[in-house]
């Protein structure tokens, strides 16, 4: 943990409002991106994002001196998502959504058609992964968290993190490969 983070944590423990503002400015874009990609739904991500920061504000005074802010916030966000999934599983009307989470495709208009198609394929393949695999890929590959930090977020040992990451990478590669194969078959002009 850097000296800057340690100082922020110390101020946060005193429930210093400006410290909370600094933490928010530093981490809110990453937390929102993580939730948006984890859930595949902007609306749900916005709800969980708000829950995450309200929980962070509620427990700001309880953080320990050695708390890693990034890991702490990603842990809260991930727990909010898991809690949402547990409740949604009890709701029969949402079960179908959980088995294959819908994806908000919002490709940026400045991308070429090919790039848009590729982005859509990756998004679709990513949404098919198990939630445990999605979260570990996001934390390690996208957010660049260290293995020890990811272990804290997921409540796993570092060895288990490495194993899960390896399985997640393999699953995503296989899913992408399958989607590419299907796309090649369905592409106009494909040999029959």
């Amino acid at each position: 943990m850097g000296a800057e983070d340690a100082e922020l944590v110390a101020r946060l423990r005193r429930r210093d409002k400006t410290a909370f503002d600094d933490v928010y400015a530093l981490y809110h874009p990453r937390i929102f991106r993580f939730l948006q990609r984890l859930t595949g739904s902007r609306q749900l991500a916005e709800d969980l994002f708000q829950d995450t920061w309200l929980a962070a504000a509620r427990h700001a005074g309880d953080v320990t001196e050695d708390t890693e802010l990034g890991a702490w916030l990603f842990t809260i966000a991930r727990n909010r998502y898991r809690s949402h999934r547990r409740w949604a599983f009890l709701d029969f009307t949402q079960r179908e959504r959980l088995t294959h989470e819908p994806v908000d495709h919002a490709p940026s208009p400045d991308r070429s058609a090919e790039a848009r198609a590729e982005a859509a394929a990756v998004t679709e393949a990513f949404a098919r992964l198990a939630p445990a695999h999605r979260e570990i890929l996001l934390l390690v590959v996208v957010e660049g968290l260290e293995t020890a930090q990811v272990a804290t977020v997921l409540g796993l040992k570092p060895d288990a993190v490495r194993q899960r990451l390896s399985r997640a990478r393999a699953e995503l590669a296989a899913t992408l490969e399958t989607e590419n194969a299907v796309a090649r078959v369905l592409a106009p002009g494909a040999s029959r």
């Binding site: 409002k17 909370f20 503002d21 928010y24 809110h28 874009p29 929102f32 991106r33 948006q36 990609r37 902007r42 916005e46 994002f49 708000q50 920061w53 309200l54 962070a56 504000a57 994806v103 908000d104 495709h105 919002a106 790039a115 590729e118 982005a119 990756v122 998004t123 990513f126 890929l137 996001l138 590959v141 996208v142």
Partner: peptide
């Protein structure tokens, strides 16, 4: 994975969340 959707939160929504959290 860099191709996954990355639409930043609307600044007004971000301010609203910060206000509630504060």
């Amino acid at each position: 994975l860099a191709l996954l959707p990355d639409d930043p939160l609307d600044p007004r929504a971000a301010s609203r969340v910060l206000r509630h959290a504060r």
